[in-house]
């Protein structure tokens, strides 16, 4: 088969060189330099010439020095007050306009909001999610807080959650039980107390069940229900696990009184989960075992008929 005629290899031999970017130093902004403003006088024109000749360092290659736009224009009056008097303009608006023109000569947009008029600058866009009022907390923490809530008292639940997190970060590092492994890739135990949010999330994610058992009423024949394992989504898994934790907490006896009583009990249970002492692990084990035995029912004839 003859080689296909191809022009592309020849193109490679051609030297493509981009034209050097037109820098303002080579083509200074003539509009800004030559055009005289309405309020300009001869003195001002002079001034414009001097500034363009004394170009800022960062445009000459030295970027370490402060660029002129960082300096507020009012601090560097282009001329002394006497000169301004002599020149015949005194208004600040004029001066501002001139400084904006000066920015144009630097090749900058004078109306860029990041340049001027902001005390703390502008935030980087896009905004991180925690900057949004409705997403300012960690999503897992929000979910647990709402599960803690009773009678719609979200504010109290939030205070409880804050107390739980404070308890976790002031309790000693947990002793992790190798028989109850936590999520793979979890940080070492000594790192957990100083990051209570991940401490709590790790504890809940580790005991969260993977499945739930769904009972189809009367499908197994003779009125017996057919147990079928169903997968859970991440959020459902967390919900189940946290409710198990709350069940265990409600069975515990309260040691103290006052507003820290309940959150401290929850926090103790969380520590117990991480250390493998909690009864919640048994619940998870039972569900998984039941699921393993019930997975034979996934292909049950009655179920297939139902579909």
């Amino acid at each position: 088969m003859p080689p296909r005629l191809n022009l592309w290899p020849t193109c490679r031999a051609l030297a493509f060189r981009t034209r050097p970017a037109s820098q303002w130093s080579q083509t200074p902004c003539i509009a800004a330099r030559a055009v005289r403003g309405f309020a300009d006088t001869a003195a001002n024109k002079n001034n414009n010439n001097t500034t363009s000749s004394q170009r800022p360092n960062h445009l000459n290659g030295d970027a370490s020095t402060l660029p002129p736009f960082m300096v507020p224009p009012t601090r560097q009056p282009s001329t002394t007050p006497e000169e301004i008097e002599a020149a015949g303009f005194t208004s600040t608006e004029n001066e501002k306009a001139l400084s904006q023109l000066q920015l144009v000569t630097y090749g900058l947009n004078p109306f860029d909001p990041a340049v001027d008029g902001h005390k703390y600058g502008l935030p980087d866009l896009p905004l991180p999610s925690e900057m949004h009022m409705k997403h300012r907390y960690d999503p897992a923490i929000v979910q647990f807080t709402k599960l803690l809530m009773q009678d719609g008292k979200l504010s109290k639940a939030q205070r409880d959650m804050a107390i739980i997190l404070n308890y976790l970060r002031s309790s000693p590092p947990p002793k992790i039980n190798p028989a109850r492994p936590l999520m793979p890739g979890s940080p070492p135990a000594s790192h957990l107390p100083l990051d209570p949010v991940s401490y709590l999330t790790l504890a809940i994610d580790s005991v969260a069940p993977l499945i739930r058992i769904r009972a189809y009423k009367g499908l197994a024949g003779g009125g017996a229900s057919l147990d079928v394992p169903m997968p859970l989504a991440a959020r459902q898994r967390r919900r189940t696990a946290f409710q198990w934790v709350l069940d265990a907490v409600n069975k515990k006896k309260s040691k103290g009184s006052g507003r820290t009583m309940f959150p401290h009990r929850v926090a103790e249970e969380i520590v117990a989960v991480v250390e493998g002492r909690s009864s919640v692990w048994d619940k998870r084990h039972i569900v998984h075992k039941l699921g393993t035995s019930a997975r034979a029912n996934l292909n049950h004839s009655a179920l297939r008929r139902r579909k």
Partner: peptide
Amino acid sequence: MERAALLTMRL
């Protein structure tokens, strides 16, 4: 300030 920085869910 302590409430806003230390006793909060946003740690």
